[in-house]
Each structure stands twice: as structure tokens, then as C-alpha cells.
Design a binder for these strands. Structure first.
Lengths: 253, 253
DNA sequence: GAGTGGTCTAGACCACCAC
DNA sequence: TGGTGGTCTAGACCACTCA
């Protein structure tokens, strides 16, 4: 990348710059290596820093770069494959499913959640917070909403919140017969809470995986999991029974 | 949204602005309505246009807004659900699968594709271009790579490329026994070709769905489909057999 | 041609990290 | 304390759409 200046092209500068940098990453850099800082790169290519940053943002979105304030810009490793399709037939919390319960509160959820759960207004819902660690990094944060009526066996004594409560809710869930469910994936941006949990800035792109679990003819639980879009590739289990190579999934304990 | 000025807050201005605008969208605007232009909005909130644009970009990423050069910024309709999990057990092109073949070329694919296909260097591969239309809008563009050896029955006479060729390749594919496959989803940005097809600008965020189809013990086809991340929510069919309400999918006749 | 969003600039200051 | 990326500004010009 010792070259300087960009030849004039019809496409936007930042887009061309993205291409040039991308090729440089392929040929001249190795994973983990740190790039020259933004001011230097901008000068080297003869563009404003804002323009250079537009190109870097693209590359970060594509998982090619990793930027950390106060540190620098480094070449990102390939995205890690994270399995989200295999535990389809089981409740959350079943025989340790790669998720680590962190907290639990009992409250009336936001309107949009209540609507999806088909719970009434003012109907209390357990909200379990969990996180998922893979390859030594927190890759996802989840809010699992469980209407109180779905876990009637839950003893109302003891801790009303906290990790212990979370585990109790998950345990009660196993008692129900899982009839089915439904899953969708869309792009979102990390809220303040998720961003902190994922070690990203607010607004960072995330893949939102929404899973509805059905038992006794109604929605018994709703999971909203946000995965770091920069570092994760969501994999949906093999179909047809053929084994394909896949990164081993590091489970929580 | 008649209010002006932002109260000082510790969080970044663009993030706070995003929140304020988001709430305004919920309460004061309806789908399709056009917002005041960027210069006016920036003045109204007392920020630079670049800062306002950062907030708008967030909201567009979340599928709340739609911006079109020369036209304006409008309130986006809710994301459309696009089914990607139902046709798991069938080859691409089976009894019309919502995809419309557009073109086909026979050539040596880029190295990364060849590696995934496990084809040798210089081994020719049919690359079929298809597009998917839903709710009257092109929501996805696909490149389907089929090694020439996977469709040995394909007569080498006649059109070497074009839609007719594409259909011929898909037809030949049906003759193979589909043994299995594998699917993953990740975030990407639209290249120039895809961007044009999807009516977006280069670099627009897309959900990249990669599907590997296995037959006769090897990868017989590789589909790389890019979905508009701003307007699409990918849905993976129900598991457990319970029927859940879902938008009807508009198929390409 | 008027009005929109898209690109680009040259600067300033801030928040964070490591030494 | 020095260096990094993150935020923000006030402007300019361009590309596109539509009346």
C-alpha cells in the first residue's frame, strides 16, 4: 500500500478507496496487523479524513477491519460461524445451550413485546438477560421474554430477580411441551445496553434473531438476540443430514 | 416534531437525535409521509447537516426511513418478511421458487467461490444470475454457481449464455439427488452490480445468505443471495409444525 | 430550473487507551 | 502525556428527480 493518490474515477472516492484498501488488505496485511492511523492514511491518499473514514466504515461493516478508539485500526480475523439453527427443537436453557444467564426481572414489557407475546396490558413478564460467548468473545446479547403465566410453577418466594431467578425461569420452561416456533433475522443497530455488552459503540450494526416459542397453543416465550454483525456469521444447521465442516462452537462451561 | 433544539445530554448528539426522531416517527408520522428536508431538519434541531445525516442513516439502517436522492426522505413501511427457510429440501429452480432467472455465463469463478465449491483452478462453472421480487419490489439478487461437472447432461449446443441457458442449468440440476446442504447469513455491503439490481447505492447494507447444496458427496451448487437489509426480514420456516401468521409471499409467476 | 439527498473538504475538539 | 479513533461543524459542489 506504499502507493499514493487515487486515479480519477467516475465512482465516489470513498467507494474507490474501499476497493483499493480491500485489495491492499488481501495482499499486504495479515490478521491482527495495525494499519497506519487515519490522518496518515488520508494524507497518503490525498483525501479528507472524513472521506477516508467512510471507506473504513464500509470495510468494518464487512468484517474486514476492527477499529478501537485509543488503540488503532487492525485487520480483523475472518468472521466466526455461530450456530443458531441447531437448538431449534429445544427450549432456551436446555442442557446448557451456549447462553449464559445474567439477570432476570419481572415487569410489564414494552408495548411491542407485549403485542408479539399476545399478553394483555399490565400482564407481568419475566425478562431474562443472557449473553453468548464464542471464541473468547461476547458475540450476542439476548432478552428472553417469558410471560408469568407460562411458568406458573415458579415459586414466588426467594430472589425476585438476578441470575438465580433467571435459571429458575429457564428450568420451569423445560416443563412445558414445546409445540413449535418461528424464527426471523433482520438488521438492527445496538442500543446502549447491547452495545456495552457487546463491547461496541451505540448504533453498531447487529443481526437481530427473533425466535418465538409456542406451547399450549400460545406464545410461551420470545427471544430477541442481537449478534455482532461485524464479527459473526450466523449458520443454520445442515439440512439433509450431510455433515459439513464448521467451526467448533465454544459452549459456555 | 414541532419542537426545536436538543437538551444537552451526555450521549452523542446524533444518537440522541436518532431517539428523538424515532419517537416522532412513532407518534406524528404515518407510513409514506415525507419528512422535511435535511437542511431544514438540521436547522430545526440546531445541528450541522452532517450530524443530522448520521441520525438519519441510523434510522434508515433500522428500516424506519427511506431516502431517495432528488426526492426526499419518507417514512418506511414495516419490513417485509421474506421466507428463506422453506425451500430447504429442494434444488434452486424447483417448481418455481420465487426466483426469476435473468442470465447465465460459463466461466472460471473468482478464487473464493472456487475454493468453496472445491473446484480446481481453471475449472469452468455456470453462474446463474437471478432476482427475487416480493411485494412488487426486487428484494434480493443471487449468484448461483454450478460447476459444469454437476450438470453433465447439459447440451453444449445452443445459447452459451442468457436466460434460456439459465433455465437449462436449473433444469439439469433437478436431475441430481439432493443429499443435503448448509446455510449461513451475514452482513455485507452491496457491490455495484447488486446495488443497481436492488435499486440502492453501492455500499448499501445487505444480508448475504450463502447456501451450499450437496449431491453425490460434493458441493453441487453454491448460492450467494444478497437481500436488501433495509427492507427485508428473513424468516426461517416454522419448526415443530405450528402455523404462525406470516405475510403471504408473492411469487414470481 | 428548483429542490432533494449524496459526496467531499479542512478544520476543531472530545473520549479513550497505553506508556 | 501523546496518539488513537469518535464526534461535530460550516461550508461547497455534485447527481438526481420532477414539475
Amino acid at each position: 500500500m506504499g502507493t499514493t493518490q487515487l486515479e480519477p474515477v467516475p465512482e465516489p472516492k470513498y467507494w474507490h478507496l474501499r476497493t483499493v484498501l480491500s485489495e491492499a488488505l488481501d495482499s499486504e496485511f495479515s490478521v491482527g496487523e495495525i494499519l497506519p492511523n487515519e490522518r496518515e492514511l488520508a494524507a497518503r491518499f490525498g483525501v479528507a479524513r472524513a472521506t477516508l473514514r467512510q471507506a473504513l466504515e464500509q470495510l468494518e461493516l464487512e468484517g474486514r477491519l476492527q477499529r478501537r478508539r485509543g488503540v488503532g485500526t487492525t485487520v480483523a480475523p475472518p468472521r466466526v460461524g455461530v450456530a443458531v439453527g441447531t437448538e431449534q427443537q429445544a427450549w432456551p436453557g436446555a442442557h446448557d445451550d451456549a447462553w449464559q444467564p445474567a439477570d432476570c426481572v419481572l415487569a410489564v414489557p414494552p408495548a411491542v413485546v407485549a403485542a408479539t407475546l399476545e399478553t394483555g396490558r399490565d400482564e407481568p413478564v419475566h425478562t431474562v438477560r443472557r449473553s453468548r460467548v464464542s471464541h473468547g468473545q461476547t458475540v450476542a446479547a439476548e432478552l428472553l421474554h417469558v410471560p408469568a403465566v407460562s411458568v406458573p410453577g415458579l415459586t414466588t418466594v426467594g430472589a425476585p430477580s438476578g441470575p438465580a431467578r433467571a435459571r429458575a425461569v429457564l428450568r420451569e420452561l423445560q416443563r412445558l411441551d414445546l409445540e413449535g416456533g418461528h424464527r426471523s433475522v433482520e438488521l438492527g443497530s445496538a442500543g446502549a445496553d447491547d452495545a456495552k455488552e457487546l463491547d461496541r459503540l451505540p448504533g453498531a450494526p447487529v443481526l437481530v434473531v427473533t425466535t418465538r416459542f409456542v406451547a399450549a397453543g400460545r406464545t410461551a416465550a420470545l427471544s430477541v438476540a442481537t449478534y455482532r454483525a461485524d464479527t459473526c456469521r450466523l449458520t443454520f444447521g445442515d439440512f439433509g443430514g450431510v455433515e459439513i465442516d464448521e467451526e467448533p462452537e465454544q459452549r459456555a462451561s
